[in-house]
Amino acid sequence: MSSTSPVRGSFRPAALAQKTARDLTFPAERWNGPSQPMDDEARRASARRLPHDDTLQPEARLAGLLLLLYAQWPAAISRLTVDHIEETDGAVRIHLGAVPVEFPAPVADLALQQIAVRRSHAVLARTDSPRLLPGGRPGRPISAWDVGERLRKLGIRLAEARSTALSQLATELPAAVLARTLGIDITVAVKWQRAAAGDRGAYAADVARRTQPNGAR
């Protein structure tokens, strides 16, 4: 995978037989399918920009990528700790569900940078498992509202970005894998897969109509 494009090929679950999830998973969340307009070009542009834009805070950039690439809602991002990310055999993986997901190179670098900062903070604050992202107030864990505000300041439309990411992932992965890697309910994963298939079918039909010669039936 090219280090300049974290979008293409960025969702790589570890082998299903690899039992490394330990106790780092979240309860499955019930999402009801796409409810917002979707703009994949905008999502891809933001995902290409965030790993390399040093004018932005690293933790905000990482949070943005977790939403744009892995459809993680602010509430889930706010609960992540440094222990949800592991580096083994040269690969950096995050546990969002039962099966870890491997980060592409630019996102992995950003994640490792954030872990180093947060572990240093943990030593000073004498805490064993620091949140991956710092809270808005000293001594307080980050809240879902804080995460959402940081993402909005990056110009990310939360519901639209999540819907777009989930739709794309649903075209690439079987529903069971999608559920296990993202930590969502299997019935919801199936709904997303069906919705994504419907979108592809409607798009193909529209292209076919527009490319037919005038008068063709």
Rank of each mutant, 00 (worst) to 15 (best):
L69W: 00
D39Q: 09
R131T: 03
Y70H: 14
V92K: 00
P141L: 05
I186K: 12
S167F: 02
T187A: 14
R49W: 05
A161L: 01
D23W: 12
L158H: 04
A205E: 10
G198P: 04
V7G: 06
A196N: 02
T171C: 14
I115R: 05
Q168K: 14
A105G: 10
K153F: 04
A197H: 14
A176C: 10
N214L: 15
F26G: 01
W73A: 11
L132F: 04
W73E: 13
E102N: 09
P174M: 00
G9V: 06
T187Q: 14
A98E: 10
A204N: 13
M38G: 03
T4V: 15
A197F: 06
R180D: 13
A111L: 00
E41C: 10
A28G: 10
T55R: 11
N214W: 11
S46Y: 01
D54Q: 12
F26N: 03
P37Y: 04
G90Q: 04
A21E: 11
M38C: 11
T181M: 04
P130R: 00
I94T: 05
W73R: 15
L16P: 10
T164I: 09
R150H: 07
L67M: 15
P174L: 02
H121L: 09
G64Q: 05
L96Q: 05
S78W: 00
S2Q: 15
Y70M: 07
M38K: 07
L124R: 08
P106E: 00
S129L: 07
S163M: 01
L62R: 01
T25K: 07
G90P: 04
Q36L: 08
T164P: 04
R118S: 02
A108H: 05
R217E: 15
R49H: 09
D83T: 12
G9F: 12
V188R: 12
R150S: 03
R22E: 12
V82R: 05
R48H: 11
S167V: 04
S143H: 04
A204H: 13
P37T: 07
Q193F: 02
R162G: 05
A42Q: 09
T187I: 11
W31S: 11
T211M: 14
V190P: 00
I186D: 10
D54A: 12
E59G: 06
A42V: 06
R44E: 10
S35A: 12
T88A: 13
P74T: 08
L154A: 06
S10H: 13
P34C: 03
G148S: 13
L67Y: 01
R44W: 06
L68H: 03
L110E: 00
T164D: 06
L112K: 07
R48P: 01
A28T: 13
G97K: 00
E102T: 14
A125S: 08
L66A: 08
A179N: 03
R118F: 02
G183S: 02
R43D: 01
L151Y: 02
V117R: 09
